[in-house]
Write a protein that binds this DNA or RNA. Structure first.
Lengths: 217, 217
DNA sequence: GAGAATATTGACTGACCAGTCAGTCAGTGT
DNA sequence: ACACTGACTGACTGGTCAGTCAATATTCTC
């Protein structure tokens, strides 16, 4: 086969892989991992089951690849928006909004992501990768918090715990949106959460009622 | 059969049910719902598979019963501790600590609970019950927040959103403990979270940088 | 357009498992 | 001592599904 032909093959192959991942995202968001048959993915992608195994080694392989692709993409977008913002407050708002926007566009992904995050606690196996991605993302937020502290924008806080808290709150927001609990208006919730967090860690701390329990990290 | 004998039978039966639920909690926390065979539960409970079906209608029935039992028990304990505390700050601390204590004692339960919470987003079916329990618990926290606002202990905040945020943070804390991320010391994290939340909603609000986005609920 | 190279297909296989039910037997009442 | 009851058992059934591979289709090269 000529070089040109080979390249076009490779591209096609790449696109095919992406199609499969799109299909996987769709079907895995409808039923959980176990309830989804490999045939369902194939059908959604309009190819035969056997073909899937030309591009991926196993069902789990497909699942993880689909998930990781979106997790990475989301992190990239959130980071880009945050870097553009100046203050911590703006950065936080950007973080929350980026997550909201991405989850609006890829609700399927969000469903799988939330399910997977939960199941980290009952399956030991190789959700390691996902777990590490999460930590990496959290690490970045921690850095942002540390910088804000260095600039004197906020008081000194344990940056890891703060970052974790920010993640927790953001996740809750998206969950409630997904559940359609109508008393929660996501946009208002974002403003409220950002305000609360910023007030909670701003310059002059509310005199803590207790002595030393708050060690720095 | 005499009356006395019948009663002792009923008690025995009740105890047997509880044993099965204990066994279920153990095995469902090791592998996820789908990966767990009904035989595994039976084996753990040291009874035959058929016997399970004398006490429960299906695998799902066992699963939900086991989960609901603990969710309810946890809510009761948390509530009791909170009612004993005076200020919002103390109530929050009690809430976080109750969850921590219960989760320490019943780590198995926590694992299942987290997994189930996540899978609410990919399975429509009757996880309704769990979902409603959650909302009920959240509603209670919202009430506590409202009372604190009425007492003037904190500023006026959207109580639903605040309660939700508190839940999110508490969950995150327990997750990190379970994952054994050693840079997170749960006790310190609790103090930090309580402080942050209380500072964030205390009497004199940090002048919000933006106008009307913060509608009351 | 022949024929090689590569890609796709879907029927098939083996493993697994929820739920059933005919049979066992310990304990109860007479 | 014996009949009876109902809790318990575990082999069995029907169905599902991940992954395979021989057969078929498509694309490429000359």
């Amino acid at each position: 086969m000529t070089l040109a032909a080979k390249e076009s093959r490779d591209q096609l192959s790449e696109r095919r892989r992406d199609c499969i991942l799109d299909a996987a995202r769709t079907v895995f968001s409808r039923k959980d991992y176990a309830a989804t048959a490999v045939e369902d993915i194939a059908e959604q992608a309009r190819i035969a089951k056997g073909t899937l195994y030309l591009y991926f080694r196993s069902k789990e392989d497909i699942y993880l690849a689909a998930l990781a692709r979106d997790v990475r993409e989301l992190a990239v977008q959130a980071r880009r928006e945050m870097e553009r913002a100046g203050t911590l407050r703006r950065k936080l708002r950007a973080f929350f909004r980026a997550r909201l926007e991405y989850s609006k566009k890829h609700e399927d992904f969000l469903r799988i992501y939330l399910a997977e995050y939960g199941s980290m606690f009952v399956k030991s196996p190789l959700r390691k990768e996902l777990c590490n991605l999460s930590r990496e993302n959290m690490r970045y937020i921690a850095t942002v918090v540390e910088e804000a502290a260095r600039r004197g924008e906020i008081r000194r806080v344990p940056s890891g715990a703060t970052a974790a808290l920010i993640f927790d709150v953001a996740r809750g927001l998206l969950e409630r949106r997904l559940l359609g609990w109508k008393e929660f208006q996501t946009r208002n919730e974002i403003e409220f959460a950002v305000d609360l967090i910023c007030s909670g860690i701003e310059r002059s701390p509310a005199a803590p009622k207790r002595k030393g329990a708050l060690k720095r990290k």
